[in-house]
Design a protein around this nucleic acid. Structure first.
Lengths: 263, 263
DNA sequence: GCCGTCGTTCCGTAAACCGGAACGCGCTGT
DNA sequence: ACAGCGCGTTCCGGTTTACGGAACGACGGC
Protein backbone atom coordinates (compact mmCIF):
# COMPACT_ATOMS: atom_id res chain seq x y z
CA UNK A 1 0.00 0.00 0.00
CA UNK A 2 2.89 2.32 0.69
CA UNK A 3 4.23 1.18 -2.65
CA UNK A 4 3.70 3.30 -5.71
CA UNK A 5 0.97 1.69 -7.81
CA UNK A 6 1.98 0.10 -11.09
CA UNK A 7 1.07 2.70 -13.60
CA UNK A 8 0.59 0.36 -16.51
CA UNK A 9 -1.79 -1.80 -14.58
CA UNK A 10 -3.58 1.27 -13.30
CA UNK A 11 -4.03 2.40 -16.87
CA UNK A 12 -5.36 -0.99 -17.84
CA UNK A 13 -7.83 -0.90 -14.97
CA UNK A 14 -9.00 2.58 -15.87
CA UNK A 15 -9.34 1.46 -19.45
CA UNK A 16 -11.66 -1.34 -18.43
CA UNK A 17 -13.66 0.97 -16.23
CA UNK A 18 -14.21 3.28 -19.17
CA UNK A 19 -16.59 0.64 -20.43
CA UNK A 20 -18.81 1.11 -17.40
CA UNK A 21 -20.57 3.82 -19.37
CA UNK A 22 -22.18 0.91 -21.19
CA UNK A 23 -21.42 2.24 -24.60
CA UNK A 24 -21.61 -0.43 -27.22
CA UNK A 25 -17.99 -0.13 -28.23
CA UNK A 26 -15.21 2.37 -27.86
CA UNK A 27 -12.45 3.31 -30.27
CA UNK A 28 -8.76 3.73 -29.59
CA UNK A 29 -8.73 7.47 -30.11
CA UNK A 30 -11.82 8.04 -28.00
CA UNK A 31 -10.36 6.05 -25.13
CA UNK A 32 -7.04 7.82 -25.43
CA UNK A 33 -8.82 11.12 -25.07
CA UNK A 34 -10.83 10.07 -22.04
CA UNK A 35 -7.88 8.54 -20.26
CA UNK A 36 -5.44 11.25 -21.21
CA UNK A 37 -3.03 8.77 -22.73
CA UNK A 38 -1.38 8.43 -26.10
CA UNK A 39 -3.11 6.50 -28.80
CA UNK A 40 -0.29 4.03 -29.05
CA UNK A 41 -0.38 3.28 -25.35
CA UNK A 42 -4.10 2.66 -25.46
CA UNK A 43 -3.74 0.52 -28.53
CA UNK A 44 -1.11 -1.60 -26.86
CA UNK A 45 -3.23 -1.96 -23.77
CA UNK A 46 -6.21 -3.02 -25.83
CA UNK A 47 -4.37 -5.58 -27.91
CA UNK A 48 -2.84 -7.02 -24.77
CA UNK A 49 -6.16 -7.23 -23.02
CA UNK A 50 -7.61 -8.71 -26.17
CA UNK A 51 -5.17 -11.60 -26.21
CA UNK A 52 -6.27 -12.32 -22.67
CA UNK A 53 -9.91 -12.13 -23.67
CA UNK A 54 -10.77 -9.23 -21.41
CA UNK A 55 -11.72 -7.11 -24.39
CA UNK A 56 -12.54 -7.96 -27.96
CA UNK A 57 -12.46 -6.05 -31.16
CA UNK A 58 -15.51 -5.54 -33.29
CA UNK A 59 -14.25 -6.63 -36.71
CA UNK A 60 -16.76 -4.35 -38.41
CA UNK A 61 -16.11 -1.01 -36.76
CA UNK A 62 -12.61 -1.58 -35.43
CA UNK A 63 -13.81 -0.49 -32.01
CA UNK A 64 -13.30 -2.46 -28.83
CA UNK A 65 -15.68 -3.79 -26.22
CA UNK A 66 -15.47 -5.87 -23.08
CA UNK A 67 -14.87 -9.57 -23.65
CA UNK A 68 -16.57 -12.64 -22.35
CA UNK A 69 -13.85 -13.26 -19.79
CA UNK A 70 -14.99 -10.15 -17.98
CA UNK A 71 -18.47 -11.57 -17.87
CA UNK A 72 -17.10 -14.78 -16.43
CA UNK A 73 -15.17 -12.91 -13.78
CA UNK A 74 -18.29 -10.99 -12.87
CA UNK A 75 -20.20 -14.20 -12.40
CA UNK A 76 -17.38 -15.55 -10.26
CA UNK A 77 -17.79 -12.57 -7.98
CA UNK A 78 -21.49 -13.09 -7.76
CA UNK A 79 -21.04 -16.63 -6.56
CA UNK A 80 -19.03 -15.44 -3.59
CA UNK A 81 -21.56 -12.93 -2.61
CA UNK A 82 -23.40 -15.34 -0.37
CA UNK A 83 -26.02 -12.69 -0.61
CA UNK A 84 -27.03 -13.81 -4.04
CA UNK A 85 -27.94 -17.22 -2.72
CA UNK A 86 -29.39 -15.97 0.53
CA UNK A 87 -31.42 -13.18 -0.94
CA UNK A 88 -32.91 -14.88 -3.98
CA UNK A 89 -36.14 -16.25 -2.63
CA UNK A 90 -36.51 -13.44 -0.10
CA UNK A 91 -36.39 -10.92 -2.93
CA UNK A 92 -39.07 -12.87 -4.73
CA UNK A 93 -41.23 -12.90 -1.62
CA UNK A 94 -40.67 -9.20 -1.11
CA UNK A 95 -41.70 -8.38 -4.63
CA UNK A 96 -44.77 -10.55 -4.24
CA UNK A 97 -45.77 -8.86 -0.99
CA UNK A 98 -45.31 -5.33 -2.25
CA UNK A 99 -45.72 -5.67 -5.99
CA UNK A 100 -42.72 -3.40 -6.46
CA UNK A 101 -39.13 -3.82 -7.63
CA UNK A 102 -36.94 -5.25 -4.90
CA UNK A 103 -33.17 -5.01 -4.67
CA UNK A 104 -30.12 -5.72 -2.57
CA UNK A 105 -27.34 -3.14 -2.40
CA UNK A 106 -23.83 -3.12 -0.97
CA UNK A 107 -21.57 -0.26 -0.06
CA UNK A 108 -18.51 0.37 -2.18
CA UNK A 109 -16.64 3.58 -1.67
CA UNK A 110 -19.10 6.43 -1.71
CA UNK A 111 -21.60 4.52 -3.78
CA UNK A 112 -24.17 1.82 -3.40
CA UNK A 113 -23.92 -1.05 -5.86
CA UNK A 114 -27.01 -3.10 -6.53
CA UNK A 115 -25.91 -6.69 -6.51
CA UNK A 116 -29.26 -8.33 -6.93
CA UNK A 117 -32.61 -7.22 -8.15
CA UNK A 118 -36.09 -8.28 -9.14
CA UNK A 119 -38.33 -6.02 -11.15
CA UNK A 120 -41.83 -4.99 -10.38
CA UNK A 121 -44.53 -6.47 -12.53
CA UNK A 122 -46.16 -3.11 -12.98
CA UNK A 123 -45.84 -1.49 -16.35
CA UNK A 124 -44.58 1.67 -14.66
CA UNK A 125 -41.53 0.55 -12.75
CA UNK A 126 -38.11 1.66 -11.72
CA UNK A 127 -35.40 0.95 -14.16
CA UNK A 128 -32.21 -0.07 -12.46
CA UNK A 129 -29.94 -2.89 -13.48
CA UNK A 130 -27.77 -4.93 -11.21
CA UNK A 131 -24.23 -3.66 -11.21
CA UNK A 132 -25.38 -0.07 -11.24
CA UNK A 133 -24.03 2.48 -8.80
CA UNK A 134 -26.19 5.02 -7.04
CA UNK A 135 -25.20 7.67 -4.50
CA UNK A 136 -25.31 6.89 -0.80
CA UNK A 137 -26.81 10.03 0.61
CA UNK A 138 -30.05 10.14 -1.32
CA UNK A 139 -31.16 6.52 -1.41
CA UNK A 140 -32.81 4.44 1.27
CA UNK A 141 -30.29 1.63 0.83
CA UNK A 142 -27.42 4.06 1.14
CA UNK A 143 -28.80 5.61 4.27
CA UNK A 144 -29.27 2.22 5.87
CA UNK A 145 -25.71 1.22 5.03
CA UNK A 146 -24.33 4.46 6.43
CA UNK A 147 -26.52 4.44 9.50
CA UNK A 148 -25.27 1.02 10.51
CA UNK A 149 -21.67 1.46 9.44
CA UNK A 150 -19.03 1.81 12.13
CA UNK A 151 -18.76 5.29 13.56
CA UNK A 152 -15.35 6.14 12.03
CA UNK A 153 -16.58 5.06 8.60
CA UNK A 154 -19.71 7.13 8.98
CA UNK A 155 -17.87 10.22 10.15
CA UNK A 156 -15.33 9.85 7.41
CA UNK A 157 -18.16 9.66 4.93
CA UNK A 158 -19.84 12.76 6.32
CA UNK A 159 -16.53 14.59 6.25
CA UNK A 160 -15.37 13.64 2.77
CA UNK A 161 -18.44 12.86 0.68
CA UNK A 162 -20.07 15.65 -1.21
CA UNK A 163 -23.77 15.51 -0.47
CA UNK A 164 -24.69 16.56 -3.94
CA UNK A 165 -28.13 18.02 -4.38
CA UNK A 166 -30.23 16.07 -6.87
CA UNK A 167 -33.65 17.38 -5.95
CA UNK A 168 -35.10 19.92 -3.51
CA UNK A 169 -35.59 17.01 -1.07
CA UNK A 170 -31.99 15.83 -1.11
CA UNK A 171 -30.31 16.06 2.28
CA UNK A 172 -27.19 18.11 1.69
CA UNK A 173 -26.30 19.26 5.18
CA UNK A 174 -23.97 16.90 7.09
CA UNK A 175 -25.62 17.67 10.41
CA UNK A 176 -29.06 17.01 9.07
CA UNK A 177 -27.75 13.79 7.57
CA UNK A 178 -26.27 12.79 10.91
CA UNK A 179 -29.65 13.27 12.53
CA UNK A 180 -31.42 11.37 9.78
CA UNK A 181 -29.02 8.47 10.15
CA UNK A 182 -29.68 8.42 13.87
CA UNK A 183 -33.37 8.02 13.18
CA UNK A 184 -32.67 5.23 10.73
CA UNK A 185 -30.53 3.44 13.29
CA UNK A 186 -33.20 3.79 15.94
CA UNK A 187 -36.15 2.51 13.96
CA UNK A 188 -34.28 -0.02 11.85
CA UNK A 189 -35.19 1.14 8.37
CA UNK A 190 -34.79 4.08 6.00
CA UNK A 191 -36.84 5.67 3.29
CA UNK A 192 -36.13 8.18 0.58
CA UNK A 193 -38.87 10.01 -1.24
CA UNK A 194 -38.01 12.32 -4.10
CA UNK A 195 -34.44 12.58 -2.81
CA UNK A 196 -32.51 11.19 -5.72
CA UNK A 197 -34.97 11.85 -8.49
CA UNK A 198 -38.39 13.38 -8.41
CA UNK A 199 -41.10 10.80 -8.59
CA UNK A 200 -39.28 7.82 -7.16
CA UNK A 201 -39.28 6.53 -3.62
CA UNK A 202 -37.69 3.65 -1.79
CA UNK A 203 -37.56 1.95 1.58
CA UNK A 204 -34.77 -0.28 2.85
CA UNK A 205 -33.61 -2.30 5.85
CA UNK A 206 -30.27 -3.77 6.89
CA UNK A 207 -28.84 -7.22 6.17
CA UNK A 208 -26.37 -8.56 8.72
CA UNK A 209 -23.70 -11.18 8.35
CA UNK A 210 -23.03 -13.86 10.92
CA UNK A 211 -21.08 -11.42 13.06
CA UNK A 212 -23.90 -8.94 13.16
CA UNK A 213 -22.18 -6.43 10.90
CA UNK A 214 -24.45 -4.75 8.36
CA UNK A 215 -23.02 -5.79 5.00
CA UNK A 216 -25.90 -4.94 2.70
CA UNK A 217 -29.36 -3.45 2.50
CA UNK A 218 -32.54 -4.86 1.05
CA UNK A 219 -35.37 -2.70 -0.07
CA UNK A 220 -38.02 -1.81 -2.59
CA UNK A 221 -38.34 1.06 -5.00
CA UNK A 222 -41.51 2.46 -6.51
CA UNK A 223 -43.05 5.48 -8.14
CA UNK A 224 -43.97 8.01 -5.48
CA UNK A 225 -47.63 7.78 -6.45
CA UNK A 226 -47.91 4.11 -5.59
CA UNK A 227 -45.53 4.45 -2.65
CA UNK A 228 -47.74 7.04 -1.02
CA UNK A 229 -50.76 4.76 -1.35
CA UNK A 230 -49.11 1.99 0.66
CA UNK A 231 -49.46 1.89 4.43
CA UNK A 232 -45.97 2.92 5.49
CA UNK A 233 -46.02 0.91 8.68
CA UNK A 234 -46.86 -2.38 7.08
CA UNK A 235 -44.40 -1.76 4.27
CA UNK A 236 -41.58 -1.07 6.70
CA UNK A 237 -42.38 -4.22 8.63
CA UNK A 238 -42.33 -6.34 5.48
CA UNK A 239 -39.00 -4.92 4.37
CA UNK A 240 -37.40 -5.21 7.80
CA UNK A 241 -38.55 -8.80 8.05
CA UNK A 242 -37.07 -9.49 4.63
CA UNK A 243 -33.77 -8.11 5.87
CA UNK A 244 -33.93 -10.28 8.94
CA UNK A 245 -34.76 -13.32 6.84
CA UNK A 246 -31.67 -12.81 4.69
CA UNK A 247 -29.57 -12.11 7.77
CA UNK A 248 -30.66 -15.35 9.32
CA UNK A 249 -29.62 -17.22 6.19
CA UNK A 250 -26.22 -15.60 6.44
CA UNK A 251 -25.82 -17.12 9.86
CA UNK A 252 -26.89 -14.21 11.99
CA UNK A 253 -28.89 -15.11 15.04
CA UNK A 254 -30.65 -12.23 16.67
CA UNK A 255 -30.51 -14.00 20.02
CA UNK A 256 -26.88 -13.16 20.59
CA UNK A 257 -27.68 -9.53 20.02
CA UNK A 258 -29.22 -8.96 23.42
CA UNK A 259 -32.48 -7.07 23.55
CA UNK A 260 -34.34 -6.36 20.38
CA UNK A 261 -38.07 -6.06 20.35
CA UNK A 262 -39.80 -8.23 17.81
CA UNK A 263 -43.06 -6.94 16.44
CA UNK B 1 -1.59 -7.52 -32.68
CA UNK B 2 1.85 -7.86 -34.13
CA UNK B 3 3.06 -5.88 -31.17
CA UNK B 4 4.57 -7.63 -28.22
CA UNK B 5 1.93 -7.79 -25.49
CA UNK B 6 2.53 -5.68 -22.41
CA UNK B 7 3.80 -8.16 -19.94
CA UNK B 8 2.70 -6.32 -16.84
CA UNK B 9 -0.83 -6.05 -18.10
CA UNK B 10 -0.73 -9.67 -19.18
CA UNK B 11 0.30 -10.62 -15.67
CA UNK B 12 -2.50 -8.54 -14.23
CA UNK B 13 -4.99 -10.24 -16.54
CA UNK B 14 -3.72 -13.70 -15.64
CA UNK B 15 -3.91 -12.73 -12.01
CA UNK B 16 -7.56 -11.86 -12.35
CA UNK B 17 -8.26 -15.04 -14.24
CA UNK B 18 -6.76 -17.05 -11.41
CA UNK B 19 -9.90 -16.19 -9.52
CA UNK B 20 -12.01 -18.04 -12.08
CA UNK B 21 -11.44 -21.14 -10.00
CA UNK B 22 -14.01 -19.59 -7.69
CA UNK B 23 -11.94 -19.99 -4.60
CA UNK B 24 -13.09 -17.73 -1.82
CA UNK B 25 -9.85 -15.83 -1.58
CA UNK B 26 -6.27 -16.30 -2.68
CA UNK B 27 -3.06 -15.31 -0.95
CA UNK B 28 -0.03 -13.57 -2.37
CA UNK B 29 2.26 -16.57 -2.12
CA UNK B 30 -0.29 -18.95 -3.60
CA UNK B 31 -0.88 -16.67 -6.57
CA UNK B 32 2.84 -16.17 -7.06
CA UNK B 33 3.26 -19.91 -7.28
CA UNK B 34 0.44 -20.40 -9.76
CA UNK B 35 1.56 -17.57 -12.00
CA UNK B 36 5.25 -18.31 -11.75
CA UNK B 37 6.03 -14.80 -10.57
CA UNK B 38 7.83 -13.37 -7.58
CA UNK B 39 5.91 -12.63 -4.47
CA UNK B 40 6.74 -8.95 -4.62
CA UNK B 41 5.48 -8.63 -8.18
CA UNK B 42 2.20 -10.27 -7.28
CA UNK B 43 1.88 -8.14 -4.21
CA UNK B 44 2.38 -5.00 -6.22
CA UNK B 45 -0.13 -6.13 -8.81
CA UNK B 46 -2.68 -6.85 -6.12
CA UNK B 47 -2.28 -3.56 -4.31
CA UNK B 48 -2.53 -1.72 -7.59
CA UNK B 49 -5.65 -3.58 -8.62
CA UNK B 50 -7.01 -2.99 -5.14
CA UNK B 51 -6.73 0.77 -5.42
CA UNK B 52 -8.76 0.49 -8.60
CA UNK B 53 -11.32 -1.71 -6.89
CA UNK B 54 -10.78 -4.74 -9.12
CA UNK B 55 -9.69 -6.80 -6.15
CA UNK B 56 -10.10 -6.33 -2.44
CA UNK B 57 -8.29 -7.65 0.56
CA UNK B 58 -9.97 -9.66 3.23
CA UNK B 59 -8.91 -7.82 6.38
CA UNK B 60 -9.24 -11.00 8.40
CA UNK B 61 -7.12 -13.47 6.43
CA UNK B 62 -4.96 -11.06 4.45
CA UNK B 63 -5.98 -12.89 1.29
CA UNK B 64 -7.36 -11.19 -1.80
CA UNK B 65 -10.55 -11.66 -3.75
CA UNK B 66 -12.22 -10.06 -6.74
CA UNK B 67 -13.76 -6.67 -6.08
CA UNK B 68 -17.15 -5.24 -6.79
CA UNK B 69 -15.90 -3.34 -9.80
CA UNK B 70 -15.38 -6.65 -11.54
CA UNK B 71 -18.97 -7.50 -10.84
CA UNK B 72 -20.03 -4.19 -12.30
CA UNK B 73 -17.99 -4.79 -15.42
CA UNK B 74 -19.52 -8.20 -15.80
CA UNK B 75 -22.97 -6.72 -15.65
CA UNK B 76 -21.97 -4.13 -18.22
CA UNK B 77 -21.05 -6.97 -20.56
CA UNK B 78 -24.33 -8.71 -19.95
CA UNK B 79 -26.27 -5.67 -21.04
CA UNK B 80 -24.59 -5.64 -24.41
CA UNK B 81 -25.32 -9.21 -25.04
CA UNK B 82 -28.61 -8.51 -26.73
CA UNK B 83 -29.10 -12.16 -26.17
CA UNK B 84 -29.88 -11.60 -22.55
CA UNK B 85 -32.84 -9.47 -23.46
CA UNK B 86 -33.89 -11.53 -26.44
CA UNK B 87 -33.59 -14.90 -24.77
CA UNK B 88 -35.19 -14.19 -21.41
CA UNK B 89 -38.79 -15.05 -22.01
CA UNK B 90 -37.92 -17.69 -24.58
CA UNK B 91 -35.82 -19.49 -21.99
CA UNK B 92 -38.74 -19.35 -19.60
CA UNK B 93 -41.04 -20.79 -22.22
CA UNK B 94 -38.55 -23.49 -23.05
CA UNK B 95 -38.22 -24.54 -19.45
CA UNK B 96 -41.97 -24.60 -19.11
CA UNK B 97 -42.40 -26.75 -22.19
CA UNK B 98 -39.74 -29.26 -21.25
CA UNK B 99 -39.53 -28.97 -17.49
CA UNK B 100 -35.75 -29.03 -17.75
CA UNK B 101 -32.95 -26.53 -17.28
CA UNK B 102 -32.58 -24.27 -20.29
CA UNK B 103 -29.50 -22.28 -21.27
CA UNK B 104 -27.90 -20.07 -23.87
CA UNK B 105 -24.24 -20.56 -24.74
CA UNK B 106 -21.74 -18.64 -26.82
CA UNK B 107 -18.46 -19.69 -28.33
CA UNK B 108 -15.27 -18.24 -26.91
CA UNK B 109 -12.02 -19.82 -27.97
CA UNK B 110 -12.31 -23.56 -27.62
CA UNK B 111 -14.99 -23.33 -24.98
CA UNK B 112 -18.66 -22.67 -24.67
CA UNK B 113 -19.66 -20.01 -22.14
CA UNK B 114 -23.16 -20.11 -20.75
CA UNK B 115 -24.39 -16.55 -20.78
CA UNK B 116 -27.91 -17.16 -19.61
CA UNK B 117 -29.68 -19.93 -17.84
CA UNK B 118 -32.85 -21.03 -16.14
CA UNK B 119 -32.92 -24.03 -13.87
CA UNK B 120 -35.22 -26.96 -14.00
CA UNK B 121 -37.83 -27.17 -11.27
CA UNK B 122 -37.06 -30.84 -10.73
CA UNK B 123 -35.21 -31.71 -7.56
CA UNK B 124 -32.69 -33.65 -9.65
CA UNK B 125 -31.30 -31.11 -12.05
CA UNK B 126 -28.16 -30.08 -13.80
CA UNK B 127 -25.99 -27.74 -11.91
CA UNK B 128 -24.35 -25.16 -14.12
CA UNK B 129 -23.98 -21.49 -13.42
CA UNK B 130 -23.89 -18.73 -15.94
CA UNK B 131 -20.36 -17.71 -16.71
CA UNK B 132 -19.15 -21.28 -16.64
CA UNK B 133 -17.07 -22.74 -19.45
CA UNK B 134 -17.67 -26.17 -20.89
CA UNK B 135 -15.85 -27.92 -23.74
CA UNK B 136 -17.12 -27.60 -27.29
CA UNK B 137 -16.75 -31.13 -28.57
CA UNK B 138 -18.86 -32.98 -26.04
CA UNK B 139 -21.83 -30.67 -25.52
CA UNK B 140 -24.86 -30.14 -27.70
CA UNK B 141 -24.43 -26.37 -27.60
CA UNK B 142 -20.80 -26.69 -28.60
CA UNK B 143 -21.60 -28.96 -31.50
CA UNK B 144 -24.26 -26.59 -32.75
CA UNK B 145 -21.87 -23.64 -32.58
CA UNK B 146 -19.16 -25.56 -34.42
CA UNK B 147 -21.50 -27.03 -36.99
CA UNK B 148 -22.70 -23.59 -38.02
CA UNK B 149 -19.40 -21.79 -37.70
CA UNK B 150 -17.64 -20.72 -40.89
CA UNK B 151 -15.68 -23.48 -42.54
CA UNK B 152 -12.21 -22.09 -41.76
CA UNK B 153 -13.13 -21.69 -38.10
CA UNK B 154 -14.46 -25.22 -37.98
CA UNK B 155 -11.44 -26.72 -39.65
CA UNK B 156 -9.11 -24.76 -37.47
CA UNK B 157 -10.96 -26.08 -34.47
CA UNK B 158 -10.74 -29.66 -35.67
CA UNK B 159 -7.06 -29.21 -36.36
CA UNK B 160 -6.02 -27.54 -33.14
CA UNK B 161 -8.50 -28.55 -30.44
CA UNK B 162 -7.78 -31.65 -28.44
CA UNK B 163 -10.94 -33.72 -28.44
CA UNK B 164 -10.37 -34.87 -24.90
CA UNK B 165 -12.16 -38.03 -23.88
CA UNK B 166 -14.45 -37.48 -20.93
CA UNK B 167 -16.57 -40.61 -21.22
CA UNK B 168 -16.70 -43.66 -23.47
CA UNK B 169 -19.27 -41.78 -25.59
CA UNK B 170 -17.12 -38.72 -26.21
CA UNK B 171 -16.31 -38.16 -29.87
CA UNK B 172 -12.54 -37.96 -30.03
CA UNK B 173 -11.84 -38.62 -33.70
CA UNK B 174 -11.74 -35.47 -35.88
CA UNK B 175 -13.23 -37.29 -38.86
CA UNK B 176 -16.08 -38.67 -36.83
CA UNK B 177 -16.64 -35.18 -35.43
CA UNK B 178 -16.69 -33.74 -38.92
CA UNK B 179 -19.39 -36.22 -39.87
CA UNK B 180 -21.37 -35.51 -36.71
CA UNK B 181 -21.25 -31.79 -37.37
CA UNK B 182 -22.49 -32.39 -40.88
CA UNK B 183 -25.51 -34.18 -39.47
CA UNK B 184 -26.13 -31.34 -37.05
CA UNK B 185 -25.98 -28.82 -39.86
CA UNK B 186 -28.38 -30.84 -41.95
CA UNK B 187 -31.07 -31.40 -39.36
CA UNK B 188 -30.65 -28.11 -37.52
CA UNK B 189 -30.02 -29.34 -33.98
CA UNK B 190 -27.54 -31.32 -31.92
CA UNK B 191 -27.72 -33.62 -28.96
CA UNK B 192 -25.16 -35.04 -26.58
CA UNK B 193 -25.92 -38.01 -24.38
CA UNK B 194 -23.31 -39.18 -21.87
CA UNK B 195 -20.61 -37.40 -23.87
CA UNK B 196 -19.34 -34.95 -21.31
CA UNK B 197 -20.36 -36.70 -18.17
CA UNK B 198 -22.17 -39.97 -17.67
CA UNK B 199 -25.81 -39.45 -16.79
CA UNK B 200 -26.38 -36.07 -18.37
CA UNK B 201 -27.81 -35.27 -21.76
CA UNK B 202 -28.58 -32.14 -23.70
CA UNK B 203 -30.13 -30.90 -26.93
CA UNK B 204 -29.46 -27.57 -28.60
CA UNK B 205 -30.29 -25.45 -31.64
CA UNK B 206 -28.71 -22.38 -33.23
CA UNK B 207 -29.46 -18.72 -32.58
CA UNK B 208 -28.79 -16.37 -35.48
CA UNK B 209 -28.14 -12.67 -35.49
CA UNK B 210 -29.66 -10.26 -37.98
CA UNK B 211 -27.14 -11.25 -40.60
CA UNK B 212 -27.91 -14.92 -40.30
CA UNK B 213 -24.65 -15.80 -38.55
CA UNK B 214 -24.98 -18.31 -35.73
CA UNK B 215 -23.80 -16.41 -32.66
CA UNK B 216 -25.13 -18.61 -29.90
CA UNK B 217 -26.96 -21.82 -29.12
CA UNK B 218 -30.02 -22.43 -27.00
CA UNK B 219 -30.79 -25.76 -25.48
CA UNK B 220 -31.87 -27.84 -22.55
CA UNK B 221 -29.98 -30.18 -20.28
CA UNK B 222 -31.39 -33.07 -18.28
CA UNK B 223 -30.52 -36.30 -16.56
CA UNK B 224 -30.27 -39.07 -19.14
CA UNK B 225 -33.11 -40.96 -17.47
CA UNK B 226 -35.63 -38.19 -18.05
CA UNK B 227 -34.12 -37.28 -21.39
CA UNK B 228 -34.67 -40.79 -22.73
CA UNK B 229 -38.31 -40.68 -21.68
CA UNK B 230 -39.03 -37.62 -23.79
CA UNK B 231 -40.07 -37.99 -27.42
CA UNK B 232 -36.94 -36.84 -29.20
CA UNK B 233 -38.75 -35.48 -32.20
CA UNK B 234 -41.02 -33.17 -30.26
CA UNK B 235 -38.20 -32.07 -28.02
CA UNK B 236 -36.03 -31.15 -30.99
CA UNK B 237 -38.87 -29.19 -32.54
CA UNK B 238 -39.45 -27.23 -29.35
CA UNK B 239 -35.79 -26.36 -28.98
CA UNK B 240 -35.36 -25.43 -32.63
CA UNK B 241 -38.40 -23.20 -32.44
CA UNK B 242 -36.99 -21.56 -29.34
CA UNK B 243 -33.80 -20.83 -31.27
CA UNK B 244 -35.79 -19.38 -34.12
CA UNK B 245 -37.82 -17.25 -31.73
CA UNK B 246 -34.67 -15.73 -30.25
CA UNK B 247 -33.18 -15.28 -33.71
CA UNK B 248 -36.25 -13.41 -34.84
CA UNK B 249 -35.90 -11.09 -31.87
CA UNK B 250 -32.33 -10.44 -32.85
CA UNK B 251 -33.55 -9.20 -36.19
CA UNK B 252 -33.11 -12.30 -38.25
CA UNK B 253 -35.80 -12.93 -40.81
CA UNK B 254 -35.84 -16.42 -42.21
CA UNK B 255 -37.43 -15.17 -45.40
CA UNK B 256 -34.21 -13.79 -46.74
CA UNK B 257 -32.61 -17.14 -46.23
CA UNK B 258 -34.14 -18.74 -49.28
CA UNK B 259 -35.60 -22.19 -48.85
CA UNK B 260 -36.05 -23.62 -45.37
CA UNK B 261 -38.79 -26.03 -44.62
CA UNK B 262 -40.92 -25.08 -41.67
CA UNK B 263 -42.50 -27.93 -39.75
C1' DG C 1 9.97 -21.88 21.90
C1' DC C 2 11.20 -22.83 17.31
C1' DC C 3 10.43 -23.40 12.59
C1' DG C 4 7.57 -22.61 8.47
C1' DT C 5 4.77 -19.55 6.09
C1' DC C 6 2.23 -15.67 5.64
C1' DG C 7 1.97 -10.55 3.81
C1' DT C 8 4.91 -6.67 3.35
C1' DT C 9 9.01 -3.67 2.37
C1' DC C 10 13.39 -2.20 0.39
C1' DC C 11 16.73 -1.57 -3.41
C1' DG C 12 19.70 -1.89 -7.73
C1' DT C 13 19.54 -2.95 -12.34
C1' DA C 14 17.86 -4.52 -16.63
C1' DA C 15 14.06 -4.47 -19.38
C1' DA C 16 9.90 -2.64 -20.49
C1' DC C 17 6.63 0.93 -21.54
C1' DC C 18 5.37 5.73 -23.07
C1' DG C 19 5.23 9.35 -26.55
C1' DG C 20 5.67 11.17 -30.94
C1' DA C 21 5.64 10.68 -35.66
C1' DA C 22 4.39 8.28 -39.78
C1' DC C 23 1.49 4.98 -42.57
C1' DG C 24 -2.71 3.15 -44.96
C1' DC C 25 -7.35 3.34 -45.03
C1' DG C 26 -12.29 4.84 -45.41
C1' DC C 27 -15.03 8.89 -45.01
C1' DT C 28 -17.12 13.51 -46.26
C1' DG C 29 -17.69 17.52 -48.42
C1' DT C 30 -16.15 20.33 -51.91
C1' DA D 1 -11.94 13.26 -58.45
C1' DC D 2 -9.46 14.98 -54.97
C1' DA D 3 -8.06 16.83 -50.66
C1' DG D 4 -8.70 16.70 -45.90
C1' DC D 5 -9.83 14.51 -41.80
C1' DG D 6 -10.11 10.94 -38.47
C1' DC D 7 -9.66 6.29 -37.73
C1' DG D 8 -6.66 2.02 -36.17
C1' DT D 9 -2.03 0.54 -36.56
C1' DT D 10 3.15 0.44 -36.60
C1' DC D 11 7.86 1.74 -35.53
C1' DC D 12 11.65 3.32 -32.63
C1' DG D 13 14.50 5.63 -29.15
C1' DG D 14 15.07 7.33 -24.27
C1' DT D 15 13.89 7.07 -19.70
C1' DT D 16 11.09 5.53 -16.64
C1' DT D 17 9.50 1.45 -14.47
C1' DA D 18 8.59 -2.80 -12.84
C1' DC D 19 11.01 -7.24 -11.62
C1' DG D 20 13.66 -10.38 -8.49
C1' DG D 21 15.95 -11.44 -4.39
C1' DA D 22 16.57 -10.78 0.25
C1' DA D 23 15.13 -9.23 4.73
C1' DC D 24 11.45 -8.02 8.24
C1' DG D 25 7.65 -8.68 11.63
C1' DA D 26 3.68 -11.47 12.75
C1' DC D 27 1.15 -15.42 13.15
C1' DG D 28 0.30 -20.39 14.07
C1' DG D 29 1.33 -25.32 14.62
C1' DC D 30 4.03 -29.45 15.58
Amino acid sequence: MTDAPLQTVTNAARLLKAFLTREESLGVSELARRLGLGKSAVHRLLTTLATEGLVEQDPATGGYRLGLVVFELGEAVRVHMDLHAAAGSVLAHLREETGESAQVGMLDGHDVVYVDRLESSHALRLFTETGRRVPVHCTSSGKVLMAFASEPVRERFLATASLTRHTPQTITDPDEMRRALGTVRARGWADAVDERELGIASLAAPIRDRHGAVVAAIGIGAPVSRFRAMPRKRLARVVVEAGEAVSRRLGWSEDVMSLRKES
